[in-house]
């Protein structure tokens, strides 16, 4: 290639990151070449620190700084409601609303035979253990409204309901404050199907 060898190595490493193509990798690499030594050091430190200090919460499998994450250890959270999500980033989305008072459970994926992911590879056993441990009233299934998200939610409903908890699925429909005109047809059709009387 046309890059000097260390630069080529950096571009190559950046290209492996999600959402980064050859062009972006090149732009980032050239940017990193120009930043000060302090900035370089703090970036390296941030990466090292995140690798050293972030672990998984032993209860909900979200990312955590300790064995138990802040949400699971907080006395202010209602422990009888568990919101089941596919990925840690889904928790961030829900937490931004500041409305949900319960706790979470991260499956770490969804059931997808095409990707070789079966229920046994997700944190389902751990979820069942939390329920059989007692004190749980409701499980909210908040996987994405995709085929695989639905498959996972239906599978979970099938095995969790016999445990005697209330199992709910988040609603799908029109984005609030959105324009009907801009909603795609899939969303509009679902919204019409799931309409409610007022």
């Amino acid at each position: 290639m046309h890059y000097a060898r260390p630069l080529a190595k950096l571009v190559g490493a950046l290209e492996r990151l999600p959402g980064i193509g050859p062009k972006s990798a090149q732009r980032l690499a050239f940017h990193l070449l120009h930043i000060s030594e302090d900035e370089t050091r703090s970036l390296i430190e941030a990466i090292t620190e995140v690798k050293e200090k972030i672990t998984q919460c032993k209860v909900c499998y979200n990312f955590a700084e300790a064995d138990i994450c802040n949400i699971c250890s907080s006395p202010k959270r209602e422990k009888d409601t568990i919101c089941v999500v596919a990925e840690p980033r889904d928790i961030i989305a829900i937490e931004k609303t500041n409305e949900f008072r319960g706790t979470y459970h991260v499956l770490q994926g969804v059931i997808s035979p095409m990707d070789g992911i079966g229920p046994d590879m997700l944190r389902i056993r751990e979820l069942m253990a939390r329920i059989t441990g007692g004190g749980i009233k409701e499980i909210i299934l908040a996987t994405n409204p995709t085929i695989e998200g639905d498959t996972t939610a239906m599978y979970l409903a099938g095995i969790l309901k016999p445990l005697g908890v209330k199992v709910t699925r988040i609603a799908h429909g029109m984005p609030v404050g959105g324009d009907m005109d801009y909603a795609d047809q899939a969303t509009l059709i679902r919204a019409l199907e799931w309409r409610r009387e007022i």
């Binding site: 059931i111 079966g118 046994d120 239906m154 099938g158």
Partner: peptide, 10 residues
């Protein structure tokens, strides 16, 4: 697939 039949049902 150990839990294949459950997924197949869904």
């Amino acid at each position: 697939r150990p839990s294949g039949s459950g997924v197949l049902q869904v």
